[in-house]
Design a protein around this nucleic acid. Structure first.
Lengths: 146, 146
DNA sequence: TGCATTTAGTATGCGCACTTACTATCTGGT
DNA sequence: ACCAGATAGTAAGTGCGCATACTAAATGCA
């Protein structure tokens, strides 16, 4: 199978399929998050902050690693979230280079509402896979590990 | 499985996994295409144009449908490709609203070189799946069909 | 202690993806 | 033939994702 034959729609490369499917998924996420007026990445960071467990406040770098987002991006998006009062990021207690990012009450409320919409969106998106979902998820985990 | 438990890295949602894997794949594509000085989307459109078979020149809308790219994006990227002499888009012979997009010799040459790099990149990326690749591809096709 | 290296974060610029709004043209029903 | 609606494409604006360059602070080692 080569790209040279991809005008035959039954024979696309896995890479192109992955890209196209992700585009569809992102569009669905955007639609699901529109009522909350936050973007996909904003939601990912907010949800990660909200549900990171007992670890407590983290640095922006640690959050970026957790959420698998770009570090530069994380900085910018967090400033946006801060301007909306959804997170606050005071100076880090021991590392004066860093900031200790934490979600606010408003941010936690929004995350709790948005996560319901996002999970419903995901459930609908992957419903077509049926019994093959666990195998699909396992394959994605393999690819993520690289 | 809920997002609320995603700090447990063994239990991520399929949506987030899909997003993270695609980010990795796009980074790999970017690296593979860097020597050719074209972006991922530019390559997709150029390759689609080059290998669309005997159908000949197409409109920008038809190309966008084929490549599963956004129509506005397609317009913009094609103008970039045109400015580099990789495609030309004269007026459509019968529909004066439309343009008949076609790849140039230079564009075809570049596509033929880039496709080798991209296929090698894809092969390496999905090598970890081994025998599970066909099932994975089938699942992606199911999701793309929606 | 002093200095090179590493790390956290910011600033800036480019290309992508999408949205809304708009023009020009084609098409179909009466 | 006419006019409403659909379609191809462009224009402008926003947010994402990444790359490069930079500042400031922590770290490690002689």
């Amino acid at each position: 199978m080569t790209l040279a034959s991809r005008h035959d729609s039954a024979d696309d490369s896995p890479g192109l399929l992955l890209w196209q499917v992700t585009n569809r998924w992102q569009a669905a996420q955007r639609a699901a998050l529109k009522p909350f007026d936050i973007t996909h990445v904003q939601f990912v960071l907010l949800a990660t902050l909200t549900y990171l467990g007992p670890a407590g406040p983290v640095t922006q770098k640690a959050l970026a690693d957790m959420a698998a987002t770009d570090a530069m991006m994380t900085s910018q998006v967090l400033r946006t979230l801060e301007s909306r009062g959804l997170v606050h990021r005071p100076a880090h207690p021991t590392d004066r280079r860093a900031r200790a990012v934490a979600v606010t009450e408003a941010g936690r409320d929004l995350a709790n509402q948005a996560v319901v919409a996002v999970e419903a969106c995901d459930a609908a998106f992957f419903a077509g896979l049926g019994d093959h979902l666990p195998a699909f998820t396992a394959a994605l985990r393999t690819l993520r590990a690289g």
